[in-house]
Amino acid sequence: MKILLCCLLLVFLVACDMETFPEPEGEELPQVLVYSDIAVLQPVKEIAAIIEKTHNCEVVIISSNAGHLLRTLEINHEGDIYFPGCSSYLSPLLELGVVTNMMAVGYNIAGFIVWPENPKQIPAEFSSLLNPEYKIAIASHIVGSIGRDTKRALTDQGIYSEVADKALFLALDSQELVDAITSKDVDLVVNWLSTKYLPGNNDKMEFLPFPAEHQLKHQLIMGQLLYSKHPEIVSAFFHFAITPEGKEIFRKYGFRN
């Protein structure tokens, strides 16, 4: 009789196993929000995956151009890390005290991007952007770091307006420029070297550096935001980025450190 009751109780307990009925509300892992420039998305994703494992958290990444990211964090007042492709986006945030801590992790280099092996033999010169034989595209200076730096470089050369007029379109970010080259919609774009190192891009484009006297090099700096709810994870993120392993990840994607 006792055995029978025990069996029944066991069946009852098994039936009452709450794991059988998952709650619709989902899990409650701590979330870290990273505003990542599209240019540095790949290394950020790799580091985020490592941090997620080591700190049992979820790293949510908003990836876009630096301007949009800046606006997004300003509007939402949320997030832990802001990582623009151009460090100039950090300045206003530093002044406002929204960025409370920073960590430099390397450099990003801009240049000309053409088709693989440069079949049209496009010279690595700014004048190529005005050559009517080449279809070109540049990034909009309104929203992105590559757009902002492109405008500055072309303005220095005195050809920005002409180039903007000639451009087939103004891209929101570097990814749209990548898409334009790989789809061969255009023959020439101004973009980051790192875009060539994005998965699947290496054999689909060729990087031609700016002339040495006009080399465009931007320091990559991550900023810890005032709104951060998990500063310990942010700190871990920062420190990992400057470890040899973290540096190797950045180098792998075409950054220098």
Partner: peptide, 14 residues
């Protein structure tokens, strides 16, 4: 449910 980050809304608002 728990308060989770919705990046789409964040960007939408921006």
């Amino acid at each position: 449910g728990v308060d989770r980050i919705n990046t789409v809304i964040f960007e939408f608002k921006a």
